[in-house]
């Protein structure tokens, strides 16, 4: 890079992001809807004993959010846990192709086995936000972690930093992407797509700021746990009947 190029780059650097905002302003202010982000704080509850591992949620998520169809891009996915008599546990994502359950394996090889739906935990203290070098990922007032795909460099720091493996690099834009709790549905009062299609009600979505919400009631009625509590990420996805082996 020569001096000239450097100067050009430096001059263009600051306004670039700003122009975007101007373009947005020009295209008209928000259509005057009375949605107030600050008065909500969203979370999800998952009842392990109800999950039948049918993957309706995974497919609905992909269809609703235009997630690449290849079987290694997921905003939500389901893991099968199999606990051996020795205490050792075997974990696999049932949505990754070519890793179908070994039909020959005898049921008696395991003391217990169950499904665990996983997704972004929408942490109150998200490590992904802390590590982003350009501030492209942030938490909204209503408690959802989003990615600004125009700012994201695709450096993958956040993918590394996420303790829950919830992020992926979108192969089309080469930017990080993840679950948004179906933000575009939630602000319209709809349920996230995965919650909508769950046949057994294993997923519960709600507002932690509303005493009457299903989620608050769920958290009151069940002993709930979060994943990797020792990391102090304060996840907002709460699991009921969580087995000690689940990581």
């Amino acid at each position: 890079m020569n001096k000239r190029d450097f100067l050009k780059g430096a001059i263009l650097f600051f306004p670039a992001g700003g122009l975007l905002a101007m373009a947005r302003d020009a295209s008209g202010k928000a259509n005057g809807k009375a949605y107030e982000p600050a008065s909500h704080f969203y979370g999800m509850g998952i009842e392990i004993d109800k999950c039948i591992g049918c993957s309706r949620c995974v497919e609905a998520c992909k269809a609703e959010n235009d997630v690449p169809a290849e079987p290694f891009y997921f905003r939500t996915w389901i893991e099968r846990y199999q606990i051996r008599p020795s205490g050792e546990s075997v974990v696999e994502s049932i949505n990754v192709k070519g890793r179908k359950r070994d039909e020959a394996a005898d049921d008696r090889d395991f003391v217990r086995t169950f499904f665990v739906p996983k997704l972004c935990n929408q942490c109150a203290h998200p490590p992904c936000v802390q590590v982003c070098p350009v501030g492209a990922t942030f938490q909204t007032k209503d408690g959802v972690v989003l990615v600004d795909k125009d700012r994201c460099l695709g450096c993958r720091y956040c993918i590394q930093a996420c303790p829950y493996g919830a992020r992926y690099l979108d192969p089309r834009t080469h930017t990080a992407d993840k679950c948004t709790f179906c933000y575009h549905r939630v602000v319209k009062g709809l349920q996230p797509a995965c919650v909508e299609v769950c046949p057994t009600g294993a997923r519960i979505f709600g507002d932690l700021k509303s005493r009457a919400s299903r989620l608050v009631r769920f958290a009151r009625m069940n002993k709930v746990h979060v994943l990797k509590p020792a990391l102090n990420t304060e996840p907002k996805v709460y699991y009921a009947q969580l087995d000690g082996e689940v990581r």
Binding site: F14, P15, G17, G18, L19, L20, A21, M22, R24, A30, P37, A60, A63, E64, N65, G135, F138, T140, L146, V147, D148, K149, D150, R151, T180, Y183, H184, R185, V187, K188, L190, Q191, A193, E196, V197
Partner: peptide, 25 residues
């Protein structure tokens, strides 16, 4: 306002909000 982080965030949120709904419920 051109360099404010808030604005980038609002732009992202609005981009998110206008995404099409596919499951009617």
């Amino acid at each position: 306002r051109l360099v404010a982080r808030e604005l980038h965030q609002t732009a992202t949120i609005e981009r998110e909000v206008v995404k099409p709904v596919r499951y009617a419920g």
